[in-house]
């Protein structure tokens, strides 16, 4: 069975880039990125290992969702605070996501994939990303978009959660296999993850450049 998946490779590259480019960063959010990617890599690796041993691993991924929600909201907070006070929005979204997670964990059990939570949080993330774009366009200041790390971080999130919307919606009936042992859902998941990690690597390069210019 496969232990090393494209997601693990993408996350590993992303983590290496983050360590190289962000470890000296003084802003907390960028350092938290390293920690998050580290945990994401461990989660993915252990999840793959459990899967290779044919051990049930949904509970493991469900636990990671809690951290994923918190991290993405923290990132959105970091990006939005440049323009508004995002606390009500962030805590509101976080509250809704956790409430749904807990409700479905009680109703369906912790070993059932928290797809509703993922769908709802994806919608919230997409809405907040679009709101960030709106604020960016409305703002009078002109930013060098090509090297603006916050913009690219948000873009990566938008690609990942918006791109995964259809597969989230059809999660329960989507076991169609394109290749042997490769369901379509998994392929979509690979693609969106690779896009996410690639854009995040570019984000970290932008951040390192920005830090150099500011120092």
């Amino acid at each position: 069975m496969r232990i090393i998946s494209p997601i693990i490779i993408a996350e590993l590259f992303c983590l290496i880039a983050a360590i190289f480019l962000l470890s000296k960063d003084k802003i907390k959010f960028w350092k938290v990125n390293i920690a998050y990617l580290c945990i994401a890599l461990i989660t993915e690796s252990y999840g793959s290992y459990l899967s290779s041993k044919s051990i049930h691993n949904i509970w493991w991924y469900n636990s990671f969702i809690l951290l994923e929600v918190a991290f993405i909201f923290y990132g959105l907070y970091h990006c939005l605070k440049e323009y508004i006070n995002p606390k009500p929005l962030i805590f509101g979204g976080l509250g809704i996501s956790y409430a749904i997670f807990i409700t479905y964990a009680i109703l369906d059990g912790y070993t059932t994939y928290a797809n509703t939570t993922v769908t709802v949080m994806s919608v919230i993330f997409v809405a907040y990303c679009l709101y960030y774009y709106y604020l960016l366009l409305k703002d009078e200041r002109v930013v060098e978009l090509k090297y603006h790390p916050e913009f690219w971080w948000i873009t990566a999130v938008l690609f990942y959660y918006f791109g995964g919307t259809t597969s989230n919606l059809f999660y329960w009936i989507l076991k169609f296999e394109i290749l042997k042992n490769f369901p379509l859902r998994l392929i979509i998941f690979y693609i969106t993850n690779i896009i996410l990690c690639s854009i995040w690597i570019y984000t970290y390069i932008c951040r390192a450049k920005q830090r150099k210019l500011q120092s």
Binding site: Y133, T155, L158, F159, F162, G163, G164, T165, T166, S167, F170, I173, L174, K175, F176, I178, L184, R185, I188, I191, T192, I195
Partner: peptide, 22 residues
């Protein structure tokens, strides 16, 4: 199932193209 899979694949492609054009 094949039809749904095609639908999802096309949908995902569109959903990835939207952020790109945005």
């Amino acid at each position: 199932t094949t039809q749904i899979a095609i639908l999802v694949a096309v949908g995902t492609l569109i959903f990835l193209l939207v952020p790109f054009f945005l």
